[in-house]
Nucleic acid binder design. Structure first.
Lengths: 208, 208
DNA sequence: TAGATTGTTAATCGATTAACAATC
DNA sequence: TAGATTGTTAATCGATTAACAATC
């Protein structure tokens, strides 16, 4: 239970364990050994045991892991037992797509506001939320205690909006803009750079 | 110039170098040293030089790198000098968002077809392309020499569709479904698991 | 030439894996 | 108890970085 100093490599693997355990749970499987899980996921059993042991001894010698229990423990580790308040900034195609995605809601990520500077989009209803003008963003974040901002705007505006977000004491930014945001250490930035993912694919394609 | 056996860690960094070099180029900057670039990107100069040297000696001692030249070389390494033919499978919100994204087109990723099994979406026009029914997918891929399939459908159908794609000799799958696709070694899969990205963010948030 | 900076080696650091004692 | 499998250590592997000779 290091709590601090767990490498991002380990963290990035947890959601995948979580997904497999969820599927096992849904299939009604109650226990699983690290070896069985390793064969399912195509990773080493050593890695699974080492990864999990960063957070505690969830298994039992001679038995393995209780699927349900491990599933719940990983949820807690990932903070999925708590709910989060989000705003989506940029109501273009991608912003709308993310706002419409019901699974985030199910996991406790609640989209309370959607903002855009384009007057043509303001007022549009996306699921239960009306797109609001950018001018209302700051007040909204402060008044509604928003944790996470989803940035789906072009990179030029993203840098500027990120500054505003930091001023509003946002805690995390899920950044889809193709730019590296400079924020204080206590603000978390998780980047999704789709074009970089596509370029990686392109590279691997060209080496075939 | 190893050509083969370059680690994915190196590959994943190339698009970021490419982005910074593109910006420098647009600013009219002609040369840059690894040290200058390292300060800009917050990585070590050693890493930049080592990464680039996997692909050739693009620099010049005592001078540094020519921005324009290095930009073009990385484009070639990433296969961005060639054009690619894509189909988008799943015309839901995310499929539409990706189909509408003009920057992919600019980089030579041409979306030639969009498919969905929902009759309500079939016939809908997204930019220049009409959504076609899933029944036409196989013939379309074969007749149009499609390289890349973008999978934006739920995970249950994704596994099955991936099999079809493999049968059609697709070369690469850009997979947005929350599932690990089992494909032969010569088919490339690049995953974008948005929910895993959000969980990573959630983890980091809960440790603050 | 002198100064600067690359390309590359060797040293370091960190992550993965094999092995096994502990123990259910 | 005997068998199984964890938790954890030690060995291995790979990636990063510091250092510097080569050279523009």
């Amino acid at each position: 239970m290091d709590s601090i100093n767990i490498s991002q490599a380990v963290i990035k693997r947890l959601p995948r364990y979580y997904r497999y355990l969820g599927e096992l749970k849904d299939e009604g499987i109650e226990r699983i050994s690290s070896r069985e899980l390793s064969e399912l996921m195509h990773v080493t059993a050593s890695q699974i045991r080492a990864d999990l042991n960063h957070f505690g001894g969830f298994g039992q010698q001679g038995y393995g892991y209780k699927v349900r229990n491990l599933y719940d423990e990983i949820a807690k580790i990932l903070g999925l037992d708590k709910s989060h308040k989000l705003v989506v900034i940029g109501a273009g195609h991608l912003g709308q797509a993310l706002s419409n995605y019901v699974n985030f809601e199910r996991r406790g990520f609640h989209i309370l506001g959607i903002f855009d500077r384009d007057p043509k989009l303001v007022g549009k209803k996306i699921r239960d939320v009306y797109v609001a003008p950018m001018e209302e963003l700051e007040d909204f974040i402060r008044c509604n205690d928003i944790d996470i901002a989803v940035l789906t705007i072009p990179k030029t505006s993203a840098v500027e909006v990120a500054k505003t977000l930091v001023d509003c004491n946002i805690r995390a930014i899920w950044n889809f803009a193709h730019v590296d945001l400079a924020v204080p250490d206590d603000v978390i930035v998780e980047n999704v750079h789709l074009s970089e993912s596509l370029m990686t694919l392109s590279y691997n394609l060209s080496r075939m």
